[in-house]
Design a protein around this nucleic acid. Structure first.
Lengths: 335, 335
DNA sequence: ATGAAAGCGCTAACAT
DNA sequence: ATGTTAGCGCTTTCAT
């Protein structure tokens, strides 16, 4: 059950297959009657234009496609990035390939190689790896890459990140202002750049306030459950925190869960990094440092498109601001 | 800045370009020294295999790609579907193109056409349209389609849905059992198949319990804000409901929001269709009819893969069960 | 073990 | 306005 080709259509319509090509591509220079005959044959045979063959021959070998590599497409932050990127791509009729890296470096390398073999026109990636030098060769060969959420390491390419250090400082300062001195922080694993930056911001804020850093208040957790456990342990410790800075959305979930279970939602203050859709449904509402995922995604897509359209500007480094949204949980004072 | 081709590599390595093809494809029958020479040339020139050209000539013209068309990739249900599909695709080294349809019929048609032009090997779609007859021709031509969340109309293809009618009945019965008689229901617009089915289940449960259907308790809402408004209006009406069945995840958010704003979270019962990650963070927790998005996605992907691997079984219709998870909000009794 | 020729489905450049 | 030829980068088939 082979698909019909232009030659098949040409034979059925009694014209040359170049005429079919003209009709299919809406090129001028074909008489009305012939156009009709060709279209009739196309319909009769169920012919479908083959874009792969087209782009192979076409002068500028574009595939009108791009790829998005995130860590976990089911995470709401990533899902929003994807959505924003897709919205921009849609305007240009670009198809978007998307997948999750799950912080696996090997997977990142394999996928980038695979996508280049497929000749996607560009890539937006939240990198899992900590060395992006391997991208240099591809970028030099004309492959376009925009990193997102995490800055490039050992290579200079376009990127869009948010002010993680500033946001974490702001979160910590906010809690300090409510009188808290024992502020726990739960972050992602330190190999993740954003986790390191947010921890930096936390430490800087403490230092500036003259509050001593206490490693016992710092935990790493990847999942919601791990975060909940970490908070539970901290609460049960000899010298428990009076406030928590949860440095990532799933950690915020885990923290809220642990506080609820302990019946301490109204006693222990918390500020989360990254807004969550249910933040205002809780009592108290969750105070967060909001990063505008849609803006990050949109901007990254626009940077990529400008490259695909020929921009040769030097690599552009975009750091978007974040915003503290007080909703109650972060305004709980020390008693 | 043209990318190197096999011919370029062959010239650089001093071999025929067929030998390069053999090396690049890990085919046997090339001596060790030649393999080395070719690989050196590949590295020197930054050569990258062109999969589009390959699949054009290759006997079975597979592109090792599939597409996923959902309504809104940023919705947590859709994001989970995508994640599950991607996990299965990953095992087979398939690339997944994904995008949102936003309930736009035109967009669905355009995308399906475009994806066929790109010769994707298969498609998993949550359809926006209400007539899928146009798919018949493509399916007959060997294109593989699996519908998800909503069943096919006017065409018979594989699909995976959940028991919407049964789930809605269960939700309604649960509220009836707590003594509620005035149960509001907020659904998606009626053009959406799942909304109609869930409304059916609601009506059936009422009828079976001998409770008269009251159209004044039924509202449609697409967004969280619209749902919140609808609930607010209902609560302010002359004869307000004592319970709410929110028939979709964003509606559940809106309902929870409205109840919280009205300070009635502990007074008005609610059950939501589709589990939400924050359901157990609220007080009371949100009782839901859980549909296993990951299972739906996984199963759909497996059905599609089996087609791609040659299955010619008659169209398979999968209806997955749903499960009521009591967390508090659904167990509030009439006072 | 290696290579030359043909052709996948299409567009570009050039006829007529 | 229509058609012919060549060739995109690759795999296949068939030599050597």
């Amino acid at each position: 059950m082979r698909r019909a080709t232009m030659r098949d259509v040409a034979a059925a319509a009694g014209v040359s297959f170049k005429t079919v090509s003209r009709v299919v591509n809406d090129e001028p220079g074909v008489s009305g009657p012939l156009v009709d005959k060709v279209q009739a044959a196309v319909a009769a045979l169920g012919y479908r234009h083959n874009l792969a063959a087209r782009s192979l021959r076409h002068s500028e070998q574009r595939t009108a496609s791009m790829a998005v590599l995130l860590q976990d497409l089911s995470n709401s932050f990533s899902a929003q990035l994807m959505r924003a990127i897709d919205d921009v791509a849609r305007e240009r009729d670009l198809v978007v390939m998307a997948t999750s890296l799950d912080e696996e470096e090997e997977r990142e390398h394999g996928l980038v190689a695979n996508l280049i073999k497929r000749r996607v026109d560009g890539l937006i990636m939240m990198p899992a790896s900590r060395d992006h030098a391997y991208l240099q060769r591809e970028v030099s060969a004309g492959f376009h890459v925009v990193l997102i959420d995490r800055p490039p390491i050992n290579v200079d390419v376009d990127f869009v990140v948010v002010d993680n250090v500033g946001g974490a400082k702001q979160a910590t300062n906010h809690l300090l202002q409510q009188g808290h001195r024992r502020i726990a922080v739960i972050t992602d694993e330190v190999r993740v750049a954003t986790a390191r930056q947010r921890l930096d911001g936390y430490r800087t804020a403490l230092a500036e306030a003259g509050v001593e850093y206490d490693g016992a208040l710092v935990r790493a957790a990847r999942s919601r459950e791990a975060a909940a456990e970490a908070v539970q342990e901290l609460l049960a410790s000899a010298n428990p925190p009076t406030a928590v800075f949860s440095a990532r959305n799933v950690i915020t979930e885990g923290t809220a869960l642990a506080l609820r279970r302990a019946g301490l939602s109204d006693r222990i203050a918390m500020v989360g990094f990254d807004d969550v859709p249910w933040a205002e449904l809780l009592s108290p509402g969750i105070t967060v440092i909001k990063q505008d995922a849609l803006a990050v995604g949109r901007l990254a897509a626009e940077l990529l498109l400008s490259r695909m359209e020929g921009s040769t500007d030097p690599p552009r480094h975009q750091v978007l601001p974040v915003q503290l949204i007080p909703r109650g949980s972060g305004e709980i004072q020390t008693s």
